[in-house]
Amino acid sequence: MIEIDWYLALSAVLFTIGLIGVLIRRNAIVIFMCVELMLNAVNLTLISFSSYHGDVTGQILVFFSLAVAAAEAVIGLAIILAIFRNNISVDITKVNLLRW
């Protein structure tokens, strides 16, 4: 049996990769995918705790977070599409309408 620490460490590494990706990339879609990666890392933490406790509640929470992630992906991609249509770019450094 693998110690739970390894699952949690893997999740931490995945979260960090996602975080660095959000910070360094400029393509809005890739940033969005990095956010999905971070969500997955948190789901992994929830499932490993839930499994090691033998308690199903954590997995229910992951189920709801999957539904929220799906909703978020749909809305986010629609926003990216709308920005691309108006601004002809998915480069977030060029989307600065609200900058003062």
Binding site: I4, D5, S50, S51, Y52, H53, G54, D55, V56, Q59
Partner: peptide, 17 residues
């Protein structure tokens, strides 16, 4: 030390998921 906070692996783990 987070592993020490958890109980021993419970027999329910097999059926929880």
């Amino acid at each position: 030390g987070v592993a020490d906070l958890l109980p021993e692996i419970s027999p329910e783990m097999e059926t929880a998921g």
